[in-house]
Write a protein that binds this DNA or RNA. Structure first.
Lengths: 162, 162
DNA sequence: AGAAATCGGTTGCTGGTGCAACCATTATGC
DNA sequence: GCATAATGGTTGCACCAGCAACCGATTTCT
């Protein structure tokens, strides 16, 4: 370590990651919004319930890595629009079981292929090997971040970490 | 294309990218905020001016990929705190030339090593080759996004795209 | 030269998001 | 068994970001 490397933004991982993630997100959010009137948090909930049938809000927050208040509001909106159904759990009245309504499932089945098509479009130019490599690197960086700063993982919507 | 692949969130690039970028950003933002009292947009401006001496707000927006209103407010704050200096450009009175004050440069020189140290910490476990591969993939995906959805690049703070 | 379009930058407004406080319910400790 | 803590979820609040309207300065078109 002598003259300290210059730190150019273009070679700075957090910055590059953010720009790319934002651009991808915005492009995708446009599809959700224009075609289906749902936001990204709402989409994450629909996707999770599409995949798992029935989950609680807490499960969804953990799985889709969102703050519990974000989930709460997104669920409220989806429930109000008849996309998600809330059922009480007789065994534990604190929590609610969430599931897609038929209408919700319809949306999921319409959005999912579009989302995947979008992903394929983004991946054009990358070989299958390169895609695997990319996911592998993301996995490892993700794991690294969880060990570096475990407390700020939005997934654990608990106050324990505070 | 038959049964349509399942679409699991964990294998969905936009989602994975966003989670990783958010975690990395938050961890880094904590350093900026706690140690130096600056936000991410403010940091991007300081970093850009640290790298280039003198730029206009428009240049910074393009280079650091931020909306012009974000830049405007961040610059206002930095100028108010004596970190950035604004000088009129006699050749074009619309724009202002921005530069770090000595105090600003001091902050840059204190933050930059910390930011780089953080990056190194995140990269622990990745070989230099893998880092290169990662940046290469990000570059290509970035380029791909610009051609897929050129209008939503926050960099071109112009209204042309509207 | 004059009208109209463009450009750099600022600002009011709105929507979204995280935090923290809170509510009701369930688990724990003595 | 009862007080206390913890948990799932909701909500008020404050902050931040983007959009769009706007302002003054400059360029373009005729």
């Amino acid at each position: 370590m002598h003259g300290a490397e210059p730190l150019t933004l273009e070679r700075f991982l957090p910055y590059r990651l953010n720009v790319l993630a934002t651009t991808v997100s915005n492009a995708l959010a446009r599809i959700y919004a224009e075609r289906f009137g749902i936001t990204i948090p709402q989409w994450r909930i629909v996707a999770t319930l599409g995949q798992f049938e029935t989950r609680t809000a807490r499960d969804i927050a953990a799985h889709a890595v969102m703050h519990k208040s974000t989930v709460s509001r997104a669920v409220a909106s989806l429930a109000g629009r008849g996309i998600v159904e809330r059922r009480p759990n007789a065994d534990d009245m604190r929590e609610e079981l969430l599931a897609l309504t038929p209408k919700g499932r319809g949306i999921y089945e319409a959005v999912a292929p579009e989302a995947l098509a979008f992903e394929r479009a983004v991946f054009t130019g990358l070989s299958p090997d390169e895609r695997e490599t990319l996911f592998g690197l993301i996995d490892r960086l993700d794991a690294r971040m969880r060990s570096l700063a475990p407390d700020l993982d939005p997934a654990d919507a608990s106050e324990v970490s505070r």
